[in-house]
Amino acid sequence: MGEHHYIHRTGWLRAAVLGANDGIVSTASLIVGVAAAATDRSGILLAGVAGLVAGAMSMASGEYVSVSSQADTERADLKKERAALDDSPEVELEELTQIYTGRGVEIALARRVAVQLMAHDDLGAHARDELGISETLSARPVQAALTSALTFSLGAALPLAAAALLPVGQAIPGVSLTSLIALAALGALSARAGGANIFRAALRVTLWGAMAMAATAAIGALFGRVV
């Protein structure tokens, strides 16, 4: 039975964690900042809903554009590599051989391996071992966009629900506490899914979330006094 590795999850896990974390932090910070300016419940909820919708769309478009750029670069490199394989197969064979010898394989064996891999799938061998492009790590723009938008919305819904259910006077501590607990849980879950240290991941995301909410609360309070 083959070993189970976490690397196969990196494509969707990165987008999911980024979306959920951003949804919680940005929406909670927005709500806390608006609440600190002494706005009524309707204003707080309006700001939260606007932040959820705008943030989800921004995450989706940002992920799609950035990952599409990565995909375009991968396609360009593969096209260039295909042309090199067609024009100079012996040069490319030697290049692959040198890659394997650089990893510690004996020269004769490295050449035999290179010959066999290129006979099976020459472009795939060079994409994987020369360019570092593989099916597992290849760019998927639509998957990244949808994952980020969905997880951002789910993350943003938590502080928004807290703001809707709590009295206006308790919005700041209630939303802050709810969001920090959610961030700690997100950090722990993402670390578990990725095989990382749970405590370190939870502490990392919670710390940054607390800093963001503290900053927006201070700005909101200052703005409220000035206005």
Score class of each variant (00 low, 15 high):
W12F: 03
A214W: 02
A161S: 12
H8N: 14
Y64K: 05
A217E: 04
L131W: 07
N197P: 02
A156V: 09
A71C: 03
A28H: 05
A20R: 02
D87A: 14
L203N: 11
F199Q: 06
L45N: 12
A38Y: 03
V32G: 07
I44H: 03
V113Y: 04
V53F: 12
I99C: 10
A76N: 09
G169N: 10
D122E: 11
A47R: 02
A145L: 05
R82A: 10
A218D: 08
A157C: 08
T136C: 14
A20H: 01
D121Q: 06
P159T: 09
F199A: 14
H4L: 11
A162M: 02
G169V: 03
V168S: 13
A164W: 09
R9D: 01
A149I: 05
I219G: 00
S58Y: 02
M1G: 12
A212H: 03
L46A: 08
L189C: 07
R9K: 07
A47C: 14
W208Q: 07
I44K: 00
L165H: 12
T136L: 11
A71Q: 08
F223A: 04
P167H: 15
L146M: 08
F199Y: 09
Y6V: 05
L158A: 06
G11C: 04
L78M: 15
S190I: 00
G220D: 01
Q170H: 04
A202W: 00
L158M: 13
G62C: 13
E135T: 03
E63S: 07
W208F: 15
S69Q: 10
V113E: 01
L45W: 08
M1I: 11
R82W: 09
T147L: 03
T136H: 05
T147G: 08
P89A: 09
E95H: 11
A38C: 06
A28Y: 00
A163V: 00
N197A: 15
Y100K: 02
I24G: 00
D87P: 02
L177F: 11
E92I: 01
H126M: 15
G194V: 07
M59T: 13
A50S: 14
I24K: 01
R200Q: 14
G19S: 08
A156P: 13
H120C: 09
A193F: 15
T27W: 12
P89D: 11
S190W: 00
L52P: 01
I7E: 08
S190H: 01
W12V: 04
Q143K: 03
L165R: 04
G51C: 11
M211R: 05
I31G: 01
F199S: 06
I219S: 00
T206K: 07
F199C: 07
A50E: 11
A84V: 07
E74V: 09
L45K: 05
E3I: 13
R41P: 02
D22N: 08
Y6I: 12
L45F: 12
R14S: 10
R225F: 05
A184R: 02
D86W: 03
E94D: 15
A188R: 00
E74W: 09
L46W: 08
A36F: 02
L137P: 01
V25E: 01
A20S: 13
T39M: 05
R112T: 07
A38F: 04
K80G: 15
T39V: 14
A201R: 06
A201P: 10
D129E: 15
